[in-house]
Design a binder for these strands. Sequence first.
DNA 1: TCGATACATCGATAGTCGTCGATATCTAAT
DNA 2: ATTAGATATCGACGACTATCGATGTATCGA
Lengths: 125, 125
Amino acid sequence: MSDPTRMTMASPADVDEAATACCAPGSGEPALNVENAVDLAARFKALADPNRLRIISIVSSNADSETCVCDLPEPLGLGQSTVSHHLKILVEAGLLNREKRGVWAYYSLVPGALGALAATLGSQG
Amino acid sequence: MSDPTRMTMASPADVDEAATACCAPGSGEPALNVENAVDLAARFKALADPNRLRIISIVSSNADSETCVCDLPEPLGLGQSTVSHHLKILVEAGLLNREKRGVWAYYSLVPGALGALAATLGSQG
DNA sequence: TCGATACATCGATAGTCGTCGATATCTAAT
DNA sequence: ATTAGATATCGACGACTATCGATGTATCGA
């Protein structure tokens, strides 16, 4: 009976108790269940920092879509350990890939990851 | 011209081929400047909470795209003051509109706000 | 093997955030 | 005016976060 993804209106009978009811409440279950909401919020949280957005911007702007860590601290004005911290968060959010070659670590966009988030946003109207 | 919030590409880097260089550093300025990054991050921050995402979901799922505050605490499992707090954040982020009619306050999606964010994300490839 | 380099991890700290209960404000009706 | 109800704001508290400097780890070259 309760499909969590279904958006149901309240039945008119629910409103008669109070002549001053503000509006018709939705069904018991919100359209977005807790599980999905937590998952989505985690990815948005990864984007909710200016320096991480700039990292994504720099990575995606490189011709080969690869950026090594050494090129990030200076333009961002951050310490190396802080940059490493942000990169880890972006990788764990599934937004960046990490590939180590020799001494260097290269980060690149996960194809479609940002697009998937964008699609989720756009579907909300 | 160009959308200021768009994460545009930095101009191609000059390739300095030092023997031990890991890669070609980008131009001095990151593709996304600090100002725009902070602005974008602020909007993503508003989305970076599961309960706020569920609020948006509930609001957008209502037939008339309007939801009064009284219908939110119960499905979210939150106190009334907490719901009010989240609504304020969403309004300040430009994602929700607030309209007070009588004793009740109705919240609705700002048309195009989520879509604009989605477009910014999608432009990253 | 030794040293240098690139990056990750650790520990600490200051600031921010989500939540609550209590209180204030605002509106409608008595 | 007074009361009741809906919502906003306030104050507090625990949890989380961004940042740093220091340290650990792995790789390459001498």
